[in-house]
């Protein structure tokens, strides 16, 4: 389980890092104020600084309230496990989609999550996986003619 204090501090740290990266990104830009007003890097530079300052203040506030925040559980062990079990397959699906295309990735994702995470019968999982993928294909490729990401399989079948 995760205490609120740790999550607050961790996320504030992440935001601070994002600000730092933003600051780094303005290094090659003119961050000054010329006669025609602010230059391209003016706002990115200052927004990054404000972001870092706000993140630091959030962290300080959290630390000042550490008594209560360290007693508050923000994510329970069970709930967190459920989130991970649900979230990681999504990540896998996106990784697979880069390589095999979106259709195959979503069919595989649906098949395995419904079978194993959802503990449904193979027939149900296969039905949903094939059904949703085919409906998506018809709606996007045929009705709205919006092509989705395709992989080697679609090319092989002559659908790419």
């Amino acid at each position: 389980m995760l205490r609120r204090l740790h999550l607050e501090l961790g996320f504030a740290g992440l935001v601070f890092l994002v600000g730092l990266v933003g600051l780094r990104g303005t290094a090659e830009l003119d961050t000054g104020w010329a006669s025609d007003g602010p230059q391209a890097g003016f706002f990115p530079f200052r927004v990054s600084l404000i972001l870092m300052a706000a993140a630091a203040l959030v962290a300080i506030n959290a630390w000042r309230a550490r008594e209560t925040l360290s007693r508050t559980v923000v994510i329970e062990r069970e709930g967190g496990a459920r989130v991970l079990r649900f979230g990681l397959p999504i990540l896998a699906m996106v990784a697979v989609a880069q390589w095999l295309g979106l259709y195959l990735a979503m069919a595989l994702y649906l098949l395995f999550t419904i079978r194993f995470a959802g503990r449904r019968r193979w027939a149900t999982a296969l039905g949903v996986a094939v059904g949703v993928t085919v409906v998506t294909f018809v709606v996007f490729e045929k009705w709205f003619t919006v092509p989705l990401l395709k992989g080697p399989l679609e090319v092989m079948l002559g659908l790419g």
Binding site: P89, M93, L110, T113, I114, R119, T124, V128
Partner: peptide
């Protein structure tokens, strides 16, 4: 367990 993955 079925609707969730479909929404994803």
């Amino acid at each position: 367990s079925i609707i969730g993955p479909v929404i994803v």
